[in-house]
Structure formats: C-alpha cells, structure tokens
Design a binder for these strands. Structure first.
Lengths: 214, 214, 214, 214
DNA sequence: TATGAATGAGGCTTCATTCAT
DNA sequence: AATGAATGAAGCCTCATTCAT
C-alpha cells in the first residue's frame, strides 16, 4: 500500500536526481566561494530541492563539500578516459596527452578551483577519500606506458619518472587556470585570449617534449 | 629611571610596530584559513595588540586582508631584488633566475597561499592595489633583459616573450608549493622530500633552458 | 489529546502572530528611543520570540523600523476610517474631523513619535514606502469632499486647498503631542490636563472653522 | 611669567573661541542626526579642535548636547528680541508677531530639529536647564501685553490665554518646519516652495487673527 | 593646553543546523 | 520525502571614553 501511495502521488520521488541536483549546485557554490565562503542557504535557494534535503542526504556542510570534491574528480577523470593513446608512437602520444591535459584543465575551471580550495585546506578531505586516490593512478599508468615505450624506442632519455612527468605537465596546465586572475591582474590579459592560449598549449607541449628527448 | 625604563620597554605607543605585528599575525591567519575562514578574534588573540586596534588601524577585515596581501607581495619582491644577474651570461642568468624562483617560492609558502586565496577571490583585491602591480613589472624587466641578451648572443631562439617566459617559470615554481597537498595525497610524498625537491628544481631549470635554446 | 493541547496552546509555529508580536514591541522601542537609540536586544527581550527571529522575518534593524513605521501609519489610518462624515453638513463635518483628529493624535502618542523620528531621518524610510503614501491620500479625499460641499453651500470661502487645510489641522493636532514635553517644561503642564486639552481641542475646531468661513 | 609664556607662544589659546567652534559643529551634528545618531568622532573631525578638547570642555556627550541645546535656544531668543511691537496697535502687533515667528522658525531649521530631538528625549535635558526656562517667559510677556491691549481696545475677545495663544502660534510655525519631510513625502513639495510658504504664513496670520477677534 | 594611541563594552548580523508538522 | 519556522553560537564592527606623552 505504501508503494502504491507513492506511485499514486507521482510526485518528485527521485532521490538520485535530487542528490545530483544538489551536488551540481553545491559544486558551483564551493568552486566560486571556497569552503567557508560557500553558503548553504545559497545552495538551497538554487536547488530544486530544499535545505532540509541537503542535510538529509549529506549530513553537514563538510560532507557535502567532500562529496562535491569527489564528484568533481570523478567527472574530470571520466573525461580523461576518452583519450586513447595506445596506438600512437610515444612522442606523439605524449604530445597529445599534454595538449589534451592543457585544454581539459582550461575547460574545467570549476574543477581547478575545487582543487585549489582543497589545497587551501591542506587536502584534508582528499586524504579521507579512498575513491579519489584510486582514480588518479590511471593517469600515471598512462604516462608510465608512454615513458616506457619512449625509452625503449630510444626517443626519450633514461630515468624519467612518470609521476614527476605528471607533476610537470600538471604544473603548466593547472597554473594556467588557477592563477589566471592574479596573473592577468598583474601582467594584463594578453596571454588569456583564445589565440595566445593555443600558443601556450603548443609551447607547453614543446617544452615537455624537448625535456624528455634524449 | 622611570623614563629610561619606559623607553627601554619600547612597549606600546609605537604605532608602526603595532601595525607590523598585526600584519604579521594577520598574514599567517589569512594564509592558513583564507579570507572567510580567517577570524579576527584569532588574529587579535595572537597579537600583542587588541581587536579594537585592528579596526583602528585597518578599518575592517577586507582592508586588513588587502594590506596583508600587499605586505606579502612586498616582502617577496624585496627578496627577489637581492638577486643580481646582470653580470652573468644569459643562459647562466636564466638558470639562476629559475632556480632562485623555485627555491624562493618553496621558502615562502605563506605568500603562495595568499596568492592562491586571492585567485579564489578572482583577484578582486589585487585589482584594487596599484602598489602591487608596480612591484611586479621589475620581475619582467629582468627577464626581458636576459631574453634580449640571449637572442643577441645567438643562444636563445627568436621571438621569446618575457611575460610568457615568466608564466612558464612561475607555473613550475608555484604549482610545486600550491598543489603539494593534493599532489602528495594522490601520489605520495616522494617528490617533496629535500633531495627530490632539489632534483625538481634542477629539472625545472633544464626544462626552461632546453625550451629557450635555439 | 496531544494534538489538541498543542493546537490549543497556539504557541509557536504561528508566523503571523510572531511577526505581530515583534512589530508591537519594536514600535514601542523605536517610538521611545528613536532609530539609533533603539536596541535590538531590548526588543528581543520583550518579545515572546528571539533576536534571531527578528532577523529571520525582518532582515535588519532598518527594515524592522520601516515595517514598524508602516504598521503605525496603517493602524492610525484604519482608526480614521471609522469616521463617517458623508451624512453631515460641511461645517459640522469639518468640526467633527478636526476634533477627531485632535483626539486621535492625542490617543496615539507612539504614532506621533514615530513620525517625529521619521522627520529626524528626513523621511528617508517613508519615501521608500509605496504603501504609506497610498493610505494618506484618503485623508485628503475626505477633506476635499467637505471643502467642495462647503463652497457649494456658500458656507466656506472659495479657493481653499484641501492639502493646505490638512496641513493646518495636522499642525494643531500634531504639535499638541509632539511638543508636549518641551512646552510643558518651559511653560508648565497646565495646558495638558484633561480639561484644558478639551478646551484646546474645541479652540482648534473653532480656529479652523473661523478660518474657512466666508 | 605664565602669561608671558602664553603670549609668546602666540598660538591658538583662545578657550572661548574653541568652545564656540565645538558648539557650532556639535549643534549641526545633533540637529542632523539626533542624540544617539550623533558621533563624537564626526564632531571632532569637523572641529578646528580635537576630541580630547571636547571632553576637556564639556565632560561627555550628554553634557555637550545639553550645552548645544542651550546655545540653540539662546541664539533663537536673541533673534526674537529684535522684534519691537510696543508701538503697534494690538492686531497689527499680533499679525507681525505671528508672521515673524513663522519666518523665524522657517529660517532656523537646526533649532527646530534640536527641539524635536529634545522632545524625543522627553525634554530631559531642558528640564535640567534653568537658563532656558528663563529665556522663554519673555515671549509670553510680549503676547500677554498684546492680548491685554487687544482686549482693552475691544478688538480681541475676552478670556484669551497668552500661553495658549503662544501654543497656537507655535503649532503652526513649528509643524511647518518639523514635519516638512514627512508631509512632502506624503503630499508632495508644493506647499514648501517660496511662494506657497509665504501664503502659508499669511494664512497663519489670518487664522490667528480671526480666532482672537471678538 | 593639546594630540594620537588605545580600549572595554556592547551593538548588529550571519551561520550552520534542528524542530514541528 | 518534504517544508517553513526556529535557534544558539559566534562573527564583525562601532561607540564613547581614557591614557601616555
């Protein structure tokens, strides 16, 4: 009878959709304002749901933030999985990976901001999330494969560390988005137009390639 | 004797010392907790002065933050001025500048965090500070000189943009500090020990040099 | 029984009652102490509700004041609507209106004080309230009708301006309450006993009637 | 030797001028913002003197207000003394007094506002000032003389009370200034232009004269 | 007589969170 | 599953006033 009643009500009654909606709004709010700057009231106001439901599904602000962080990583890593590099020669694969990473970060400023915020918080929430750590090792695996193939082919110098290489690629791609505001406030917006950004990407690719070559 | 004692105590009635003290404590608080996360009460408690004096000298939280940001930039840029590159050949000068920047950022995590926080706030306060913008052009001038000399000597390729080069050096140096927390949470702390950091610095130098060479 | 008891208690969960209670207390506090002199803490203490609820329903002190001002006008104008003058000859209608206004102001010192306070604030809040302006035109309509009838009957002189007449009636009625404190401090309380007040009212009626007559 | 030193310093050293300056600024501040709305800091900033001097000469905010109130009454009463009515027939004298009072109030809005504020405070400060009470009896004396002469001449009706007459004249003259803000917010500014104000004054004169006539 | 520095008390407001229905 | 009402704790800021020189 209970189920019948629910069915009859025909109302919202879609818990997963409600949670997705909340997470979407929460991510935007956290990305824009930081953890302490974010307001539960603003999230509730922009949600199709209500403040009560936020607490019902997520417990409190910190846990909502943790879930938004997880969701942001999941979404971004899902995008990265689209990239297929196995069939390419190692230098082309690396070039493509760098270019992709640069563009991908550039297309996901909300994710970048979530990571910035997490760093402000000393990665306290990331440390607690098993889920996210798992996702990121795949990225290293990809690089490790490229490095191995590049060394084997005599194209790359020996002794490259895939994690360090990931660090270098990330540095160039991440900084471009994370520090855009201060950089352009100090030195103008010239670097951040479409054309110059494409140059920056190409130069980043070249920088990495020059670095790994024998 | 009484006057001597008072003078020696050097205690209150020293506005500049009071303001410096407040700024020092405020910078630490803002760097640790962000703008909304920072607490005036905590700053006051750690100060030799009082909450009331914070408002007396700085007006409100936002202006205190703006002043702390300015002070952070000023301190860092003052450190950079110590570096004398004019006498070195261009490639050595560039190597030294990159290495110095890397180490310097690494030694000033509070400054890095202030810049991160400012980026979270879309550089709203930086945009309002004439003072800071002035300081940063000197950094570009140094690079422009190196680039010019490098090109003239046939060591560097033509067409290098000093601002873009600054962007590249900053990316590698900044990310190393700003994203240390998330990076080590995801991939371990191996890269952040003393030895590996020195390697990272050397590799950053090499990466930049390989990039600029003809 | 539980539900009955709760329902009977009629206690909380009654937003309109809570707001009315707050407005009642707030009006008393503002009327007594002015806008800057009023204390939210005092209002909260005298309310059945809490300080937090004041902000929940009214936003801030200024808006609470604005609402109290509106409520004061609404209550007074509602009282004035009781007065039915249409059936009376114009001179009697006017006499009754003046007498009523005089007594009405005298019975509503809190309202008079609110208007005094609003004048101290250069009517900044009144200017922002569409609601109040609407209410007051009815008062003019009443007078306009009397004036028209009086002129038509040859009882009143031509050229009377209803707004100016309202000004004159208000002046006599308002001053009696607004300046009672200073006036009696300077010239004694004789005028403000019950009997003399009734004389003052009758004399005000006579003054207005003598003025409008041909 | 002390006096010599002072003379030699040739500095400010004019206590009375300093106090006058403070009172002038304080009156403006109190008249504009009320007692609780007034700010000692603002007064100090507009003064040629300093905050310390305000406390030195006046003790505290309340006593400063009390002194400003006294000064306001003194200045206004001094203005009224200019008026010479003894030589005029009683009806002309009364007409002149009413017109003068109307104009005089209109020219001294700061004084009117001080009186309004004092009424908000239930005349607590006026009650404490012997000085002010003395000043005001002169005004009544003038009226009493006119009334006596008018009755004797058979021009005015018997039984007029000079204090009540003062109340009536004051009501019309005071309200015009005190309630200008709310009145014009509710009914427009038409009544407060120069020409209409002159009519209002003439009508007030007429209203009083019609009232006193036999 | 004069000044800038300093202060305790208290004001207004906001926040995440929970309750009653 | 859902909602508007309610709340305690704590945040930021301001004020009249006094101190040290």
């Amino acid at each position: 009878m209970k189920t019948i009643k629910k069915a009859k009500a025909g109302w919202k009654q879609n818990p997963e959709a409600v949670q997705r909606d909340i997470l979407r709004v929460a991510t935007a709010e956290f990305a824009r304002n930081g953890l302490s700057g974010a307001r539960i009231d603003r999230i509730a106001a922009r949600t199709k749901s209500s403040k009560r439901m936020i607490y019902y599904y997520f417990g409190d602000k910190d846990r909502l933030y943790a879930r938004a962080l997880e969701a942001a990583y999941a979404k971004v890593r899902a995008g990265e999985d689209q990239l297929d590099l196995a069939g390419l020669p190692p230098d082309e694969a690396l070039a493509r990976l760098v270019g992709f990473t640069f563009d991908h970060h550039r297309s996901n400023p909300a994710f970048i901001r979530m990571v910035m915020i997490e760093n402000i918080h000393h990665a306290a929430f990331l440390a607690g999330s098993e889920a996210i750590r798992g996702m990121n090792l795949a990225a290293i695996d990809k690089l490790a494969d490229i490095v191995r193939r590049g060394e084997a082919a005599g194209l790359f110098r020996a002794g490259l560390d895939p994690i360090e290489l990931h660090w270098q690629i990330s540095a160039l791609s991440f900084f471009n988005v994370s520090n855009r505001a201060t950089f352009s406030a100090l030195f103008g917006k010239a670097l951040f137009g479409r054309e110059r950004q494409e140059h920056l990407r190409d130069h980043s690719v070249e920088m990495i390639l020059r670095y790994v070559r024998v």
